[in-house]
Nucleic acid binder design. Structure first.
Lengths: 198, 198
DNA sequence: GACTGAAGCGGAGCGCCGCTCCAGTTAATT
DNA sequence: AATTAACTGGAGCGGCGCTCCGCTTCAGTC
């Protein structure tokens, strides 16, 4: 509970009161702008929406990734914490995995361009990539291991590969009725299941 | 053989000789630059590499997508034509589908950032997306149908969704040894297989 | 309340990019 | 040789990321 700060990004603690206030203002503005224009929105716009200068935004969040992680921090955290809970409550490890992936996918597809940013090969987002991985990879690994252990799915799948695959499947135009990443992810999970050895 | 021109993009025919020459020069320069810097490379750079002005590039290829499609035209065509051939030669329709997807994936992953561009939600690449779909979707549909017909895979999968999924899985950093899209695509295909109804 | 130095602020400025536009050049035709 | 339609190139505009530094404001001190 004490150790916050995702990536060297120190929150308000010990800072001057105006700085704390500004940090919050920027965060709120960024959240609004991200929601309407995606996480690629110009920093200028976020700054002016917050009523501050660009310098202020950049001081609090040196890279765009820092800003994005700060905005979505809570939701990432929730997703991470849901892992063990689901594993404890679900009917089977495979079911837990399925439900957790659902959660993750919901998160990705409801944020414009977030999945795109995550997988982007521009290094503007490298820190974001890293943060997601640090936080969620262990959770995914735990679920995967449990499902292998129980014999629900075949062994050999790397958590990193699975998570990237899921992230990748969520990339792209957000509102194309012909494309629903969930269907493909279901297919992927079906492929993961242990072929019953009769 | 007569009808070329992917997207309203008329090739050299009937143009002035200097224009024809320039078109080829630009195409060659673009191919080189794409190979080294990806399909996102600045138009300025392509122009200067070709020794022409930007205006020239833009006149021959009004959008970036036009340039990209022109550069990869042959390979897309090959891929499209391979579909029926594979279907005729392979052991089973599913095998043909597998091999065709392999071909497609190889094409995508060997071109820096091509998959990224394909799925990008920026509309700079909309025409590229369209061209790929126009040319390859029918082929994929044919293979898919055949595999359904033969009972190899379950029905109900939309060709569009499958192709986008495959494209999406190829997105991202090109040289991460931890991530091989092929493994996930194999998983996807496994999920597609008809569950033997015992 | 006045003083002060450090922390914070903002936006002008630089470089890079996509894309347009038009005065000048060149190839084809007569 | 003259004509003209086609073609050319790059200056120029607007937008963006990011930095840098003179100015402002806060928070302790007396």
């Amino acid at each position: 509970m004490a150790a916050e700060s995702p990536a060297g990004q120190s929150p308000s603690r010990g800072k001057r009161s105006d700085a704390q206030r500004n940090r919050q203002t920027v965060l709120a503005a960024a959240a609004e702008v991200f929601a309407t224009s995606g996480v690629d929105a110009p920093i200028r716009r976020i700054a002016s929406r917050a009523g501050v200068g660009m310098g202020t935004v950049y001081r609090h969040f040196p890279t765009r990734a820092d800003l994005v992680t700060a905005v979505y921090h809570h939701q990432i955290e929730e997703c991470a914490e849901a892992g063990p809970t689901l594993l404890a409550d679900a009917d089977s490890p495979l079911d837990a995995l399925r439900q957790w992936i659902d959660l993750f996918v919901d998160f990705l597809v409801t944020k414009h361009g977030l999945a795109d940013a995550l997988q982007s090969d521009s290094d503007r987002f490298a820190a974001l990539h890293t943060y997601f991985l640090d936080r969620l990879l262990p959770v995914c690994a735990q679920l995967l291991d449990a499902a292998v252990e129980s014999g629900d799915i075949r062994p050999g799948t790397q958590p990193y590969e699975l998570m990237r695959g899921i992230g990748n499947l969520c990339v792209g135009r957000d509102d194309d009725p012909r494309y629903d990443p969930r269907r493909l992810i279901a297919l992927l999970l079906a492929g993961l299941r242990q072929p019953r050895t009769p």
